[in-house]
């Protein structure tokens, strides 16, 4: 019985990775040729749907949101301009977060009281990041190449954070500073695996807010969800238990990515015929992915995720340098 479930899980993983690889490769071949109109037009939205479906299926098993995979993969392998990739990525990240966070808020796992001080700073810097990101691609003829190189470098930074940061399930908070005490940064939820209510207090809210200046900026500039940065800040700086931190991170994304999404829309950087299939693919895929992540999270998935991200980062940097005629 157990081996059958394991087999099914592996079939599922192979399908998810297969979807990502097939539709990424098709993007490469089409991007490499100028004859993009030689294939049926309906093929593009459908292939984008299946690519994001695959990402949505795999991302929850790797413990990440979809945006952090979508933006590097499409910018590296697909022929769209960076503006449309980032606009699409923001819409996906925000839809994913908006659909997942209500259930966490109702159980007490998502904590708005902790999220709000951080997002006020994060949203402001995300707006600045979105404006700068669009300015660079539009004011400079080679702007998209600068963004691609920066995205590649940021991906290595993200990978380093994911590999090096240790997740503490229940951090011990010995002292709550004055500011955090005034904000009343605490929470509680019922943890079924322990069979009891878990209570926690957060500290170092000021330092967390400072960290969110950078987190929000990167989210807005590159169209990423930034859950990869939210969770370590909440867990390691504020001392929030990891389960509450992951849930609160989703609440944060609903707010930090909202204003940048509107800015990209107001600049015409969101194309519905690309955005809608991508968002719907992610919407369905992440639901399947969340269900499968409950069953198991094989460690190998994380390595596959890392490999895909490293490859995408190298491709982004290569394409950026190639565009600048440096290679």
């Amino acid at each position: 019985m157990a081996s059958l479930a394991a087999k099914q899980l592996w079939v599922y993983i192979v399908i998810a990775i297969g979807l990502i690889l097939i539709f990424s490769m098709i993007g490469i071949t089409q991007a490499a040729t100028s004859h993009v109109v030689s294939i049926p037009l309906w093929y593009w939205p459908i292939s984008l749907f299946f690519l994001t479906l695959g990402i949505g299926m795999l991302a929850p098993m790797a413990g990440v949101g979809g945006g952090v995979m979508f933006v590097p993969i499409t910018s590296a392998f697909w022929p769209f301009h960076m503006d449309f990739v980032r606009g699409c990525g923001l819409c996906m990240a925000i839809t994913n977060a908006l659909t997942s966070s209500p259930k966490f808020l109702r159980t007490g796992l998502g904590n708005i009281r902790v999220a709000l001080p951080l997002v006020t700073v994060g949203t402001g810097s995300a707006i600045a990041g979105a404006c700068l990101g669009l300015y660079i691609t539009q004011a400079f003829p080679c702007g998209k190449y600068y963004i691609k190189i920066a995205l590649g470098a940021i991906l290595f930074f993200i990978l380093a954070i994911m590999v090096l940061s240790k997740r503490v399930e229940f951090p011990e908070v010995k002292y709550v500073d004055k500011f955090s005490r005034w904000l009343r940064l605490s929470g509680r939820w019922y943890e079924p695996s322990l069979g009891r209510v878990v209570e926690y207090h957060c500290t170092r809210a000021g330092l967390g807010m400072l960290a969110f200046v950078g987190v929000g900026f990167l989210a807005g500039m590159f169209g990423l969800g930034a859950g990869w940065a939210n969770v370590p800040v909440l867990n390691l700086i504020l001392g929030m238990p990891i389960k509450a931190a992951t849930s609160t991170s989703l609440c944060i994304i609903t707010m930090t990515d909202a204003a940048p999404a509107a800015i990209y829309l107001a600049k015409g950087a969101i194309l519905p015929l690309l955005m809608i299939p991508a968002v719907l693919g992610m919407y369905i895929g992440s639901r399947i992915g969340a269900w499968s992540a409950v069953i198991a999270r094989p460690k190998v998935i994380k390595y596959i995720f890392f490999a895909i991200l490293v490859f995408a980062a190298i491709m982004d940097i290569y394409k950026g340098l190639h565009g600048l005629h440096m290679i």
């Binding site: 109109v37 769209f80 301009h81 015409g268 950087a269 194309l271 690309l274």
Partner: peptide, 25 residues
């Protein structure tokens, strides 16, 4: 979709300017 595929390599402002002659704001 044909227009999108033809011009999607352009930055968003150029995309709309060439395609529809408008400045999105």
């Amino acid at each position: 979709l044909a227009e999108i595929v033809k011009y999607w390599k352009l930055a968003s402002t150029k995309f709309w300017m060439i395609l529809k002659g408008i400045r999105i704001h």
